[in-house]
Simulated assay, not measured.
Amino acid sequence: MKSRLAIVAGLLCLALPMLADDDRPTLNIDLHSRVSFMNDRVGNEIRHDASGFKGDYFFLIANGQVDDHFSYSWRQRINKKIDRNDMFDATDWLYVSYQADRHWGVAAGKQVVMIGGYEYDRSPIDIYTSSEFWNNIPCFQFGASASYTTTNGKNRFAFQVSQSPFNIPQHRDMLAYNAFWGGNFGFLNTLYSLNMIEYSPSHFISYMALGHKLNVGNASLELDFMNRAASGQTFMFKDCSVMARVDYRVLPQLSLYGKFTYDVNRAEKEADKCVLPGTELTAIGGGVEAYPLKGKSDVRVSLSVAHSTGTNSNPAGTMLDDQTTVRLGLVAKLHVLSWKK
């Protein structure tokens, strides 16, 4: 851990002189962490290996402006082991963006694969109950993207070419083609995508992801639908997922949430690498979040309960039949540094 932090500090020291030569460079550094105490049971049997105290996530996040056009963003998982064959394995993203004007922008580096939906868009630190799809999609890949934002700022369209989330060492050149739309219409927001993803050389699976978020007063509802299909199978509803989350801020320092997920794959083709054929899983969860710092949500204490039922045909899958998980968690999102020349 000490050597990893020393490497991070060294990289930041190298970055500062580079930034100092530009027009108006900025640097922001944050640390995000979540620790939990878990009770995980299948039926009446406790899963000892999945229970007890657990350090879930520890993120280092650095981002800022180089000048009026160039910006950068970097998120590193400090507590994730780095594979000797992939030095970027613990790097969620590391990319540079160029904003030509108020409409057009491009970016390149390791990015989030542009797949729609609000569950997919949330930071993992903020998710307690998740779909089987979310648990199995390798969503950070190298690629490049171009985006266009409309004059009123309500619509953002993007196209991205990236490594396939399912690339393998023998085929690093497998690709994904992603078209994305994000809409902001006040009480209604959208995150839509159409994706063509290579799951084996020259074979593609398509995603249609439709994410919606409704905001009404102190309440919000996120509703996602994702359909997945490959050549030679029925396109709609045979292989799909539904995710829904409702949040209600009862008091300034207290909120309640509920979550529902449903994953099913009745296709016979071995194209879906996230929800395997023969899987049908339902999960229901809910809980309470408390914010001990008045007027801030940087520190959060949560108590959540989730229960899943159904069949998971993936031997290495995350969700199990008749599984109940109780989680007491502490989240800290700490702003460490803001620097501007």
Rank of each mutant, 00 (worst) to 15 (best):
T234C: 04
V216C: 08
Y177L: 07
A176S: 12
L221Q: 11
Q233G: 00
N195P: 09
F166S: 00
M226I: 15
P201C: 02
A229L: 03
F225M: 10
N227E: 15
L210W: 07
S206G: 12
H212M: 08
S206C: 13
G183A: 12
V216R: 03
T234S: 14
Y177S: 00
H171G: 01
S202H: 15
G182Y: 07
A230V: 02
Y207R: 07
N227S: 14
Y207C: 05
F187K: 12
N178R: 03
A230M: 00
L214W: 14
R228E: 02
F225D: 04
A219M: 13
H203T: 08
L191E: 07
N215Y: 02
M174Q: 03
E222N: 09
N218V: 08
G182C: 00
M208Q: 11
H203N: 14
S193K: 10
S193D: 09
L221I: 15
N184K: 07
L191T: 09
P201G: 00
N184P: 00
N215P: 00
A179F: 12
Q233T: 04
S200H: 12
F166P: 00
N178I: 03
H171R: 02
A179G: 15
V216P: 03
S202K: 15
K213P: 04
L188N: 10
R228Y: 00
L210S: 06
F166Q: 04
A230T: 06
N184I: 09
E222G: 01
N227V: 10
H212F: 11
Y199D: 08
P169M: 02
S202F: 08
N178H: 03
A179S: 11
F185C: 07
L221A: 12
M226S: 06
I205S: 06
A219W: 11
T234N: 12
G183R: 01
S193T: 10
L194E: 08
N227R: 12
N189V: 05
T234G: 11
G186Y: 13
A230N: 02
P165M: 13
